[in-house]
């Protein structure tokens, strides 16, 4: 029997996933499809925000949605009523999606010809932040009733996203939510972030959000050509 020896590996646990994610982004660039990774805690209004976003963009962009959920299709059904292409991804008990699962989802969605694919990640502010899905940009939704301390409690999530939607802004008078403090806390960990206050219910701020999204989709397409 050969003797055991210590062999240095020195490889980040996320290395493999990061490589897969980079490959997926290259693929998306040549396919001219913009993939947005949308994250939040449960109950922040992710699905409602998506439905409203679909209504305002579905006539100008070809859109697909991938709904990740541990084990249900409640959200996928709601989204499919808007008429866009949607599939449900079951993570089988896992709390996040990785690049490989995202790629499988895109294949199943048949994303060729789609300008924009939105991945609704599992509702959780911890694990999805750790795994690069291969998306072109990442967004998170924080809703007013959740509290203004979330950037302090989950700094990683707020440091990996490109845009933060502060949802249910119409309820601001009823909660002890210090909007300025959130902006300051988030900018401290992520100076380049775009912060957009919205109300998916009343429609407030949604134009600014859909404009941001449309600009990003156009930029992505122009970069690829």
């Amino acid at each position: 029997m050969k003797p055991f020896k210590v062999i240095e590996v020195k490889e980040s646990i996320f290395e493999d996933n990061n490589k897969q994610a980079d490959l997926l982004r290259m693929q998306l660039k040549s396919d001219k499809t913009f993939l947005l990774n949308l994250m939040s805690s449960p109950g922040s209004g992710k699905t409602t925000t998506l439905v409203k976003t679909m209504h305002s963009l579905k006539d100008v962009l070809n859109i697909g949605v991938m709904e990740a959920d541990i084990d249900s299709d409640v959200d996928a059904r709601t989204i499919s009523e808007t008429g866009v292409k949607v599939i449900q991804l079951h993570t089988g008990g896992m709390c996040h999606l990785d690049a490989d699962m995202t790629k499988q989802g895109l294949n199943e969605l048949e994303h060729e010809g789609l300008d924009l694919v939105i991945l609704e990640n599992v509702g959780n502010l911890v694990c999805p932040a750790e795994f690069d899905t291969g998306a072109c940009k990442s967004a998170a939704i924080l809703s007013v009733p959740e509290g203004d301390d979330k950037p302090l409690k989950y700094p990683l999530m707020f440091s990996v996203i490109d845009v933060l939607l502060i949802n249910k802004i119409d309820t601001l008078p009823y909660f002890d939510f210090n909007y300025e403090a959130v902006v300051e806390r988030v900018k401290k960990i992520n100076p380049k972030i775009e912060i957009i206050p919205i109300s998916a219910k009343t429609g407030e701020g949604l134009d600014r959000w859909t404009n941001w999204l449309q600009t990003e989709v156009n930029n992505w397409k122009n970069q690829s050509s």
Binding site: K2, K5, V6, I7, E8, V9, E11, I13, E15
Partner: peptide
């Protein structure tokens, strides 16, 4: 923030 496989003992 590290999270890596440092080494393995193997043959």
């Amino acid at each position: 923030r590290e999270f890596s496989i440092k080494e393995i003992v193997a043959c």
